[in-house]
Amino acid sequence: MITSAMGIWNYWIVFILMMIGLFIVIGRKNLLKKIVGLTIFQTSVFLLYITLGKITGGTAPILTENSSTIYSNPLPHVLILTAIVVGVATTALALALVVRINSIYGSIEEDDISAHDLIDYHDQNNTLKKSILQNSK
């Protein structure tokens, strides 16, 4: 009973971690926090993949002379190995975008940015209206 509960305990916690990551992404308004949420989500997906590749009593997939050794599944390891490095590159891209947004809008809170955009939009509309009026005159 306890062994079988331990057998899927990892999956449960990994799913809860994923949901925490998703909640940080959609629930928080701070853009930096959203990136951290994505990182949490990403790492828990990696954990799920690696957990699936595990074999009890197996060793790391580095071949030995002994032919009776059991190796854990190397395929998820390869997928995740490259995904980690790509993940850091894309996180850096997201951070660069946030830094640029902060230097132009002066804030990284979602509400402030959309309010700023709304004001800009109205200003543009007003100038457009003025120019149309001037042209018609």
């Binding site: 595990k54 390891h77 850091v88």
Partner: peptide, 15 residues
Amino acid sequence: TLDAVDVAFTEAAVG
């Protein structure tokens, strides 16, 4: 502990 030594190496260095 899940036998993924290469991945652990990468995660420790990169993540």
